[in-house]
Design a binder for these strands. Structure first.
Length: 177
DNA sequence: GAAGTGATATCCT
DNA sequence: GGATATCACTTCG
């Protein structure tokens, strides 16, 4: 939860593309049945049990990749799903990759932002403190952070583990009205 | 509101 | 080895 909050406002950079993190969800490891890591170490989930600060990328629904960042020390499980970005750089490249023009359609969802940023399972396990895929310091002062239940899950669906920047137009679900 | 897509884990021989 | 159920989504109606 601490990492999920702390990532809001930071900037994800991959090649020439960059986006400011505006929406995240926390996944709590063994006791959280909505987390991939809740069933223990498998070939897929071994990255989550590895070192913090590394990327966990998985493939879901037959067509989408989703990016998480490992949040707990090695041997423990816990990660943060990156749900939405505010595009900062490489916006025309994002438009080409997404096949969409509207800037709000580029990174406003976990499957969309991986496509816009060209993140795939090829980046699974990378250290995001250095190398091709990194998280950099962004404007994270005095954010109005809102907490809600997580999206799209059935187990532990009422836990308040989704964090977003209030009023930001680039979150995955557009504000009502 | 529903279809579409394929990897993964789990259970079965 | 194989079958089945599940899935943290997006798109187009």
């Amino acid at each position: 939860m601490e990492v999920a909050r702390g990532l809001l406002g930071q900037v994800l950079v991959h090649g020439d593309a960059a986006g400011r993190i505006v929406e995240t969800e926390a996944y709590l490891g063994l006791k959280d049945l909505a987390a991939h890591s809740s069933r223990g170490v498998t070939p897929r989930t071994k990255v989550i049990f590895g070192k913090p600060g590394h990327a966990y990328v998985y493939f879901i629904y037959g067509m989408h990749e989703c990016l998480n960042l490992v949040a707990e020390p090695e041997g423990e499980a816990g990660c943060v799903l990156i749900r939405a970005l505010e595009p900062v750089a490489g916006i025309d490249t994002m438009r080409e990759r997404r096949g969409r023009e509207n800037i709000r359609d580029l990174c406003s969802g976990p499957g969309k932002l991986t496509q816009a940023m060209a993140i795939t399972r090829a980046q699974n396990g990378l250290d995001v403190t250095r190398g091709e895929l990194t998280v950099q310091q962004g404007l994270a002062e005095d954010l109005d952070i809102r907490v809600t239940p997580r999206i799209g899950i059935t187990k532990s669906a009422d836990w308040p583990l989704r964090f977003l920047i209030a009023g930001n137009p680039f979150v995955s679900k557009a504000p009502k009205r």
